Amino acid sequence: MQRDEIEKIEPVSNGLKLTAKNGRLATLHYKDFERLKSATPKQRLDYRISFEGLRWNDLDEDISFESIFNPEQFPLKLSSKLKPINMSEVARRLGIQQSLMAAYMNGSKHPSEKRKKAILDEIHKIANELLSI
């Protein structure tokens, strides 16, 4: 499902109610997403509509329309098994500042060969953790 198939998105007490142009209804329940569950009401409403879903920049959360309208196809809740997987988490796991990791990513700073190897090793470690689920 894509953006042009969505007719309306409106807040309800426990989440966001989505109406598709074909009449289908679905509710995104905040309780089902760790970042939304712990967010403030203002943060929960500060989303943008992307091509295939909803994006909360401040929360670093993306949820596809497909998973909202067809939750049975997405039964595995990784949030209960894993922390969010992003470069901030890689930085945390390595014990370096997120801002330094961001500088590496945008090219304004360059990691040493030793640091580069540590980053790649940590990413491979995360991949292996994902494979074990």
Rank of each mutant, 00 (worst) to 15 (best):
Q2T: 12
R3A: 07
R3S: 12
E5L: 12
I6V: 07
I6H: 10
I9Q: 09
P11S: 13
V12Y: 11
V12A: 10
S13N: 14
G15C: 03
L18M: 07
L18G: 00
T19Q: 06
A20W: 06
K21W: 08
G23W: 02
G23F: 06
G23H: 07
R24E: 09
A26K: 08
L28M: 11
Y30H: 13
K31V: 05
K31I: 04
K31Q: 13
D32N: 15
F33C: 02
F33H: 15
R35F: 01
L36W: 01
K37Y: 11
S38K: 15
S38D: 14
P41L: 03
K42A: 07
K42D: 04
Q43A: 09
Q43S: 10
L45P: 00
L45V: 01
D46T: 10
Y47A: 04
F51L: 15
F51V: 13
E52V: 08
N57V: 10
N57R: 14
N57W: 05
N57T: 14
D58E: 12
D58Y: 06
L59Y: 09
D60I: 00
S64Q: 06
F65I: 04
S67E: 14
I68D: 00
I68G: 06
E72N: 14
Q73L: 13
F74G: 00
L76N: 08
L76S: 13
K77I: 04
K77R: 15
L78M: 08
S79K: 08
S79N: 10
S79R: 04
S79A: 12
S79D: 13
K81C: 04
K81S: 03
L82R: 03
K83Q: 12
K83H: 08
P84N: 09
P84E: 11
I85S: 02
S88V: 02
V90H: 05
V90M: 10
A91C: 06
R93K: 11
L94D: 08
G95W: 15
I96P: 02
Q97N: 14
Q97I: 10
Q98C: 01
Q98F: 01
Q98K: 10
S99W: 13
L100H: 01
M101S: 03
Y104E: 11
M105A: 08
N106C: 09
G107C: 02
S108D: 03
K109E: 09
P111R: 06
P111I: 04
P111W: 06
S112R: 01
E113T: 09
K114G: 01
R115G: 00
K116P: 05
K117G: 04
K117T: 09
A118T: 03
I119C: 04
I119W: 04
L120E: 13
D121F: 05
E122P: 00
I123G: 01
K125V: 02
A127C: 12
A127R: 08
N128C: 05
S132P: 09
S132R: 15
S132E: 14
I133T: 00
